[in-house]
Design a protein around this nucleic acid. Structure first.
Lengths: 194, 194
DNA sequence: CATATATTTGAACGACTGCTCAAATTAATT
DNA sequence: AATTAATTTGAGCAGTCGTTCAAATATATG
């Protein structure tokens, strides 16, 4: 019978995610991670394979947090568009002060990595597609309710939202003006292409 | 009398810029740079101080390329807005295939670095402000010509353009659809807030 | 309690990091 | 051509990188 691991796997992945998110893939060393999650190299490699393997778990965890957040917002807001707006504001504004990095970890990873880590890039892209798919669902629900013009392409609008998030989170690292950011997010959904 | 350096400083900085731009600050090692620019460590350190010093020169060079490009476009296009649109398209679309990285080096740097390299972050921010200042000048010129509503704030519009560039260049790394990107750039200037 | 199995440990490996500096080389000056 | 000054060289330093694996420890089974 397999012995139950002494370490708390979810907690370990969560801490690793925060460190990777803050410092990026290359600047985070295995020794940084050893200290952060309080595990010795052998245990980490037994549990996650290598640095890439642990990073993939971090990407998965980061994405799940986002997806979960969307589900939670669905229970707070009646309107699908309100869910989307609340999510974007959480990503762009709140995360600037509370998150390990103001940047989206997926966008940051896409920006940082090269062909040398193509598999990590591919993983990252597929996770961005997962988030986008949730945006599409929200927008289609909004269209069904008449909140958004039915003739517009939900895919295109979802892409537009992701572009705005990437742009605004980058800008927020330069100029973290909450009021300005708040207005900019509102503008996204009250003007073309919405 | 100081001996004229045997190496071509501008060529060295240009090559270093391309490597830093492609791989990012942390993933670019001094040995990578030694190979790329064909200089021995002693010479590099004599000329640039340290890894940070060379990176600062790279940031300066990268920014100058952008500023120069704007000046060149001014001589091709009569309309200030045409200059701005052409520049954004060059940044977002053309650079995807020709540049070392599809990303804006300044945005990439802002995303990658942490407080540990605050001086490099500050340098990067000031260069982004330089670019933004050029955008402001172009927009104000467009306003003087009646191409853009005089009542709009040129600063805000310039910020908007920078956010769109950051967002689109990130998106372009995921989905490099030239037609789609082209339309998206045109949309920036034909809808709110323009 | 003894045995077998699963898990954790941490020293250590070869390769690489940013960087230094005495020695060699090159160029300018007399 | 001899002397001085500027520049380049590259071996090498101390430290870190990602990773391995025999030994120690912990858990489960008989």
């Amino acid at each position: 019978m397999a012995k139950a691991a002494k370490y708390d796997r979810q907690n370990v992945i969560d801490k690793a995610t925060n460190l990777y998110w803050k410092k990026g893939f290359h600047a985070t060393s295995m020794r940084n991670l050893q200290d952060e999650i309080d595990m010795r190299p052998g245990s980490i490699y037994a549990a996650f394979g290598n640095k890439d393997g642990l990073f993939k778990q971090a990407l998965r965890h980061y994405t799940d947090i986002g997806l979960t957040q969307i589900q939670q917002l669905k229970q707070v807001h009646d309107s699908p568009m309100a869910v989307l707006i609340a999510f974007v504001k959480a990503q762009v504004i709140e995360s600037q002060d509370t998150a390990p990095s103001g940047m989206c970890m997926l966008a940051k990873t896409i920006g940082e990595l090269t062909e040398e880590n193509q598999d990590l890039i591919d993983t990252t892209k597929s996770h961005l597609a997962e988030i986008s798919a949730e945006f599409v669902k929200l927008i289609e629900a909004a269209q069904a309710l008449g909140e958004v013009d039915k003739h517009k392409n939900a895919q295109d609008l979802a892409i537009h939202v992701q572009i705005q998030i990437a742009g605004l989170r980058t800008f927020a690292k330069i100029n973290n003006d909450t009021n300005l950011l708040n207005n900019k997010v509102d503008d996204i959904f009250s003007h073309y292409p919405f």
